[in-house]
Design a protein around this nucleic acid. Structure first.
Length: 260
DNA sequence: ATGCCGGGCGAAGCCCGA
C-alpha cells in the first residue's frame, strides 16, 4: 500500500498538478494538507474519476485536510480531540480497509506557530501536545498506524540547509522539536529516516529568495509509523522533482510503501 | 530579508504561510 503525504497549498490552485501527480505516482492513499477548500467546494468529481474515495475536513480560506483512498474508508474522524473550542481544520483520520491488513491513517497540518512570543506559538505547542495525547491513544490499539503530514517542525540540523538561518523560528525552537520528539518517543518511526540516513533532504522550499534553485529547503513533512506499520515498511522517498513542475506547491510529496 | 512569493478573498489591499 503506497501512502503519500503532501501539503498542496490550495487544492483549487493546485488541482491540475495534483491530478497529474496522482495519475503518475498512483498512490493507494493520499494525505493532503492545506486544501483551503470547504467541504462544499472540494473538487470531488475530478478526484473520484481517478478512482479515489474521499474524506475531507475543510474550512473557508485556511487549513483543510483530506484523505484520498482507492480502498474503502472506514471509521472517519474529523478534528483533533482535546479542545472543543478549536475550530481549525487541521486533522482527519480514517481506516483504510485493506482486506485482512487494514491501516489507520491521519492527515495532519500542524500549526506554524510564528511569530514566537505570541499566542500563535502557544497554540502550536498546545496543539502538538494534543496530538501526542491522541497518538498515544491510537498506539494503544496496537495496529498499523500512519500519521502523515506537515508537522511544521525541523527535527535536527541535518534537516535544514542552514541551522543559523532558522534559529529562533517557531519551526526550529527547542520546544517544537521536543514536542515532535515526544511523539516519536511514544514508539513511532520517522519513515524517511528509517530508509535514508543522508543529511539535507528536504520537503519544503520557500517560493521566495530563489530557495528552490539554491536548494535552501527544510524537512518538515513526515510519515510517522507505529511499530506494526514499521514492520511492514518497504520503502520511503521524497518526490522532490514535483517542486520543479509548473505552478508547484512549496511542499513536495513524501511517500512510503507499507507491505501487505 | 518578521514577507523577496503565492494563495484567499474579492475586487484594493490585507491576512496568512514557513
Amino acid at each position: 500500500m503506497k501512502i503519500v503525504t503532501w501539503n498542496v497549498n490550495s487544492l483549487k490552485a493546485r488541482l491540475p498538478l495534483v491530478l497529474d501527480y496522482l495519475r503518475a505516482a498512483k498512490p493507494d492513499v493520499a494525505l493532503l494538507q492545506e486544501t483551503k477548500s470547504t467541504d462544499d467546494s472540494f473538487p470531488t468529481l475530478e478526484i473520484e474519476e481517478l478512482g479515489y474515495n474521499i474524506a475531507r475536513h475543510g474550512q473557508k480560506s485556511y487549513n483543510g485536510v483530506a484523505i484520498l483512498s482507492k480502498l474503502q474508508l472506514e471509521d472517519v474522524r474529523s478534528g483533533l480531540p482535546g479542545d472543543p473550542a478549536d475550530d481549525q481544520a487541521r486533522y482527519i483520520e480514517a481506516v483504510i480497509a485493506a482486506p485482512g491488513r487494514p491501516v489507520r491513517v491521519a492527515s495532519i497540518y500542524a500549526p506554524n506557530g510564528n511569530p514566537v512570543e505570541t499566542p500563535k506559538f502557544d497554540y502550536k505547542l498546545a496543539w502538538l501536545a494534543r496530538l501526542q495525547t491522541h497518538a498515544a491513544e491510537l498506539l494503544a490499539y496496537e495496529e498499523a498506524l500512519v500519521l502523515g503530514g506537515d508537522m511544521n517542525v525541523i527535527l535536527s540540523d541535518d534537516d535544514v540547509y542552514d541551522p543559523r538561518a532558522w534559529e529562533g523560528d517557531a519551526l526550529f525552537r527547542p520546544e517544537s522539536i521536543g514536542a515532535l520528539r515526544t511523539i516519536l518517543n511514544l514508539g513511532m518511526t520517522d519513515a524517511y529516516r528509517a530508509c535514508h540516513t543522508e543529511p539535507h533532504r528536504y520537503t519544503f522550499w520557500d517560493y521566495q529568495a530563489a530557495a528552490w534553485s539554491k536548494d535552501h529547503g527544510i524537512r518538515i513533512d513526515y510519515l510517522l509509523l507505529s511499530p506494526q506499520a514499521t514492520d511492514r515498511l518497504q520503502a520511503c522517498a521524497i518526490d522532490k522533482q514535483v517542486r520543479g513542475w509548473e505552478k508547484p506547491s512549496d511542499h513536495v510529496p513524501v511517500w512510503a510503501e507499507i507491505g501487505e
